[in-house]
């Protein structure tokens, strides 16, 4: 009975996630089509001749209705056929292959460091509220959320690569490098991401834990004679888990955006660089493919946050 209700809830959430993905794909497609006038003209700019415009129109199939093109694009995408780049003429799947892996590598190393670091700091700040540790952590994070990603990137580059010479200024990784060498290559961009993301995560964690610590059941636990350890581990943590999980997912989602800028600072060959390139050259099929990949990852992260929250919260798990 209980498990049937639970799996039902999760199935429902999965279904709504699928709908979101569908809407997102529609918006990615529509977003690249909202141009007043004609994509072909926009791509060619001043070099547009009637012939070249027609060539592009043919290539993109622009003479057919948008809805048909959308369905075809989505169908191919799901099959793993992302189409062909307008500019380079290469298969988008090939273009994306190593870059996606590079970005994923960078983001996961950053996540592995940032999440325990930031959540830990947030906990410390919340548990020592208004003491020196909390105040210094809070003011530090306020400064760090205000710093643009590229400032942190260049500062680290200046210090870590140019002045100290500990790390390479250009972050290139290749499959011939050992794992340690790869780690060293991404050290600076990774550190940048960690700093950028941690500040947000820590602030949110602090707020979530504080709101739990102010509940009446925490006072009750103390009045039952529970020690500090027990109060935190047994009473605060299970209730803070679901908001903190959500925050962790937000952090991961934030990494997606951070990756775009940080890759540009360090000339790191990843999805971000690829998408920027595509946007500035108006390589529409490539923009669509990159956009949909980024957006899908984001939607999936949100979805898993929600499912984890259902699993960890009895009030959502067993609604009355």
């Amino acid at each position: 009975m209980e498990s049937a209700g639970l799996s039902g809830l999760i199935l429902k959430r999965l279904a709504s996630g699928l709908v979101t993905l569908f809407i997102v794909s529609l918006m990615v497609f529509a977003g690249t089509e909202i141009l007043p006038g004609d994509v072909a003209h926009a791509i060619l700019g001043q070099q547009a001749t009637p012939d070249s415009v027609q060539a592009i129109r043919d290539e993109l199939g622009l003479d057919r209705p948008a809805i048909l093109r959308y369905l075809e694009w989505l169908y191919n995408f799901v099959q793993g056929d992302l189409g062909v780049s307008l500019i380079s003429g290469r298969e988008i799947t090939d273009l994306i292959d190593t870059r996606l892996r590079n970005s994923f590598f960078l983001a996961s190393v950053a996540a592995v460091i940032a999440i325990p670091f930031a959540v830990g700091l947030g906990l410390v700040a919340a548990l020592y509220e208004d003491r020196l540790a909390d105040k210094s952590i809070t003011i530090m994070t306020l400064v760090f959320v205000s710093l643009p990603d590229f400032l942190l990137g260049y500062l680290l580059l200046l210090v870590g690569a140019v002045t100290l010479g500990w790390f390479p200024a250009l972050s290139r990784i290749s499959s011939s490098m050992s794992f340690i060498e790869q780690l060293q290559a991404v050290a600076l961009p990774c550190l940048t991401l960690v700093l950028v993301v941690s500040a947000h995560t820590m602030r949110l964690t602090r707020a979530a834990v504080l709101s739990v610590m102010n509940q009446a059941y925490i006072e009750m636990a103390e009045l039952k004679g529970a020690g500090r350890r027990r109060i935190i581990l047994r009473h605060a943590l299970p209730n803070a888990l679901s908001p903190v999980l959500n925050i962790v997912m937000l952090t991961l989602a934030y990494l997606i955006v951070g990756v775009v800028v940080v890759e540009a600072v360090f000339n790191y060959s990843g999805m971000g660089q690829l998408m920027i390139d595509a946007v500035s050259k108006r390589d529409m099929p490539l923009v669509q493919a990159c956009g949909l990949i980024f957006a899908s990852v984001y939607v999936l992260l949100n979805l898993s946050a929600d499912i984890l929250s259902i699993l960890t919260n009895p009030r959502r798990r067993r609604p009355k």
Partner: peptide
């Protein structure tokens, strides 16, 4: 909700690729 299903910067990039 639909607009917020995207990371902001990515949505911005997609739109900018179209509208300049």
């Amino acid at each position: 909700d639909a607009l917020m299903a995207f990371p902001g910067l990515i949505l911005a990039l997609i739109v900018l690729s179209a509208i300049g």
